[in-house]
Each structure stands twice: as C-alpha cells, then as structure tokens.
Design a protein around this nucleic acid. Structure first.
Length: 496
DNA sequence: CACTGCGGGGAAC
DNA sequence: GTTCCCCGCAGTG
C-alpha cells in the first residue's frame, strides 16, 4: 500500500509505471529496461496498462477479478481475454445484508450454461448473465504479453456491469460447498432441501460464512458492485457512485499488494465512506469544471482521471441509470445497442461535447497535456490521438504475425524512448504540450504510422472504438485512489 | 469438474 | 484483411 499510494501521490508518479511509458501491447518492441514494475491489479477497469514483473504469480496466471475468458486472437505472443460479465439474480433481489447477488460467470462454456440454469440462492428466481459490453459494445478485453522480465498488461474497455466475485472468492465458496457436502451432516440436509436442480450451491448466508471471514466476507456481493445496482433500480441513480466502487478498485489497489491480489472486500469499506472522492470528481466531468477532482483525487490521475475517468464511470453510470427499471437485460440491451448506445450517451449529457472524438482531445488536452502528462498512453492529442487509440483499441495482432516462432520480433533494447522510463517525472512536466511527440513512434512501428494516417480517413471507426478509450485511458488513476489502500489482501493466498 | 491456453475456423464488417 | 466469436483439444489442479 504504502508503495502504491506513494507512487500515486507523489508528484512524480502520477500513474502506474506502465502508464507512464508509451507502449501498446501490439508494439513490436516494448519497453525493455524496465526497472520498475506495477503492483498487480486485480480489478483493472478502463484503458490501462501495467507492467508486472515476470515473477508476479498473479500476472503469470493472467488473473483478474473480472471473469475473463480466453479469446483466440491468433497471436500467440499476446494472450487476449474478454470479459464474461457477471451473473445476477434476474429479479435483482436484495440479499439479507442489502447487497446484490453477483456471481462470477464460469469461464468454461459448459459450466456457465449449467450455472445459468441454477436459481438465485436468495429468492429462487432465475439467474441472469449480464454480458460485458464495455468496449464499444464488445466485452472488455485484457491483453497479456510476456517480454523479457516483464509481463505487459493492457486492458481495453470499461466494464459496464457490477463486479462478480473475485476468483478467489468463487473458489473459496466452492471449496466450502464441497466441504459442506462432504460432511455427513450436510449431505443429509442437503438432500432434503435440494430438490431443485437449479439451485445454487449454497444459500446465501452460507456464502458469506463460507467464503470468507473477516472483513471480506460480504465483499463478494456487496462491494463495489453493490452500489451500482442499488442505483440502478432504485430511483437513485448517480453515475458516480456507480462507477466509484469498481472503478476505483480496479486499478487502485494494485500497488498495495505486490503479488497478492487485492480483495474487494475493502471496497465495501470505502463505499461506506462518504462518496467523497468521486463526488467531487463528478462536477468536473458533468460540468465542464476543470477538475476539482484533482484535488480530491490523486494527483496522479489529474489529467487522465479528470476527464477520462469520469467519462468512464459516468458513462457506465448513465447506461445503468438510463434503464432504471430494472432488469439488467433491459439496461444492457439498451446499452448493448453497441456503439449506438454509447454514442448516444456520449453525444448527450455532459459528454456531449466530447461525443465527437476530435473534440475530446481539446478538453482532454488541457488537462492531460498541460498538466503534464507524459505518460498518457493515448495522449490524445487532438489530432493524433485518435489514430493511436485506434490502433490500440482495435488491434489484436497488428504488426504481429500469428506466431510462427517466438523470435518473430526482436525487441531492441532501449529502442523505446527511455525517457519515459527513467525520467518519468521530467517528462511529465515537460511533455505536456506536445505530448504526442512523446509518443515515441518507433520507426519500426509501422503500425503507428499507419494509424496516424489512418485516423484522418476513418472517423467512423474511431468513433466506434475509441470514444471511450479516449477518455478512459487514464482512468486508471481513478481507480487507484480511493481505494488504493483498500485491499491489501490476499488473493492467491488460497485461503481456502 | 472446471480452469487455462492453444488453435482451427466461421461470421460479420 | 481484421476482429470477434464458437468450438474442441489438451494439460493441470
């Protein structure tokens, strides 16, 4: 934690190490002489990048709090995973503690189908899978790439759904169930109660008990997600609160637990507290207020966060808010309208201005660039950014070839602009205006070049995938701070 | 039994 | 040509 917070708080480290450097998972050459690594982030959200140590077990396992399934991108160098969303009660019932059921979708297709046939452990109504559409109508994607001593991680998209249980929680629950089942006592009981085939493994209350003790317990459901839901349905709908919870975590905690995943449980704690961080932030984006946020938030996220974050959150919030009624389906369906949905949203409301991608930069720029954002990945310079982003977002393979052999690309060392690496600080401050220039465009990366040129020509495409990205990119910061301190906990710890 | 990663292949744009 | 998705396979725990 300390490390994390320090990083973020300190002026020099506005963003994670990975975000400070300009790279894309598709770059033929990634930063080589990494001297610093990001702490593992269990709940990444938004367009973020991290560089983990290749020794980080969580990173090695390509873990995520979100239920991510492997997606074939026909590029063996880059592992791509897409988000499955979250399983909720179709009736949106409230658990005894007021939280909502938010199960982790099974990764395996078959298992997921079975899972969906089960009933809500709390009210027995059907379970429903809320698909993730946070990336221009498609599921949020995570990319992993091992290069040298580092594991590069890049996420694209903003989760538009509550968080599911973390993997560890799910596992814990399962093992608990097993134990239960195995115990003679339970097995008997179980038969009595179990008639319903669909039923979930355990009744809710049990979940808590079994899952974890300590502060975490309820986190499963309550945590971050909770807010969201609450807002949805009930009259209340605040974008921020919604996002607040998870956004924050997403990235936030990372620093704290070096190799351990953070637990959401803490979120809960945060939620409880006055919605401060975010609230303030809101004004920034809603209004055009520059960013009061900065003050409250991390210094680190200033630019990025200011706008991007909110946009992220707000968007998601909006989407939910839009269909306050109820069923996830609905809201999702609407949102699902893919880009359309988002587009509309974007074009309206606070973001209207930014709806237009090109414009975004303007606003954004001030923040980002003026302030000092070297790191910004996308550093959407009004003109160029789009192009870059496009690349980033869309690409899966790009210049990379399906992998004949690993050696395909040799990464020159130091080809990367090391500025970012070593002198992040300085960069931050100096780079502002031309941010783009900073984006080093390695000669070799034809990708980028093409992208740039591309941008002018293809506004449409940009819109589609980039709208979000634009802002979201830096969002990571938002995540980080409110809760950075939060879950120092375990993940792997295999408590169970 | 489920998770994970790989890879073939189809559909849509 | 690119991107996404589905499917099956195999290894692992």
């Amino acid at each position: 934690m300390s490390k994390t917070s320090d990083q973020f708080d300190s002026s020099d480290c506005v963003c994670s190490f990975g975000m400070k450097l300009t790279w894309d998972i598709n770059d033929p050459k990634l930063p080589q002489d990494t001297k610093q690594y990001d702490a593992f982030q269990e709940w990444t959200d938004g367009y973020v990048r991290y560089i983990y140590s290749s020794e980080d077990k969580n990173a090695q396992r390509h873990l995520s709090g979100w239920a991510m399934r492997n997606t074939n991108n026909h590029n063996c160098q880059i592992l791509k995973k897409s988000c499955l969303g979250v399983v909720v009660c179709s009736r949106n019932c409230s658990l005894p503690d007021g939280s909502k059921l938010q199960l982790r979708p099974a990764i395996c297709d078959k298992a997921r189908q079975k899972q969906q046939k089960k009933l809500c452990p709390n009210c027995n109504s059907a379970l429903e899978l809320i698909p993730c559409r946070g990336h221009s109508g498609y599921p949020v994607t995570n990319f992993w790439r091992v290069d040298g001593k580092a594991i590069f991680f890049q996420a694209k998209g903003v989760h538009d759904h509550p968080r599911p249980e973390s993997k560890s929680e799910t596992e814990a629950r399962r093992s608990a169930v097993k134990r239960r089942m195995s115990s003679p006592h339970f097995s008997q009981k179980r038969r009595l109660v179990e008639p319903e085939p669909g039923r979930y493994d355990m009744a809710f209350p049990n979940i808590h008990q079994l899952t974890m003790d300590g502060p975490d317990r309820f986190s499963i459901i309550a945590e971050s997600n909770y807010p969201i839901q609450t807002q949805h349905y009930p009259p209340f709908q605040n974008p921020e609160p919604y996002k607040f919870p998870y956004d924050t975590h997403t990235t936030a905690a990372m620093a704290d637990a070096p190799s351990t995943l953070q637990k959401p449980a803490n979120h809960r704690l945060y939620m409880t507290r006055p919605p401060c961080g975010y609230d303030f932030a809101v004004p920034g984006y809603l209004g055009s207020g520059p960013y009061p946020t900065t003050l409250y938030k991390d210094p680190s996220s200033p630019q990025t966060e200011t706008e991007p974050n909110k946009s992220g959150p707000s968007l998601s919030g909006m989407s939910h808010g839009t269909s306050p009624l109820g069923s996830h389906e609905r809201s999702y369906a609407e949102t699902t309208g893919k880009h359309h949905g988002w587009k509309q949203i974007l074009s309206k409301g606070a973001y209207g201005e930014r709806g237009d991608y090109t414009q975004l930069p303007t606003n954004a720029n001030h923040h980002y660039y003026n302030s000092d954002y070297p790191c910004r990945y996308t550093g959407p310079a009004p003109a160029t950014p789009a192009a870059l982003q496009t690349i980033i977002t869309t690409t899966t393979k790009v210049s990379y070839q399906p992998c004949p052999k690993p050696s395909v690309v040799k990464y020159g060392e130091n080809i990367y602009d090391v500025k970012g690496l070593s002198n992040c600080n300085s960069i931050l401050e100096e780079t502002s205006p031309n941010s783009y220039s900073d984006l080093k465009i390695p000669e070799d990366s034809g990708v980028i070049k093409s992208a740039l040129s591309y941008q002018d020509t293809l506004p449409a495409k940009i819109e589609r995938s980039e709208n979000f990205e634009g802002y979201r990119y830096s969002s990571y910061s938002s995540n980080s701070y409110p809760e950075r301190m939060s879950h120092p906990f375990r993940y792997d710890s295999g408590e169970y």
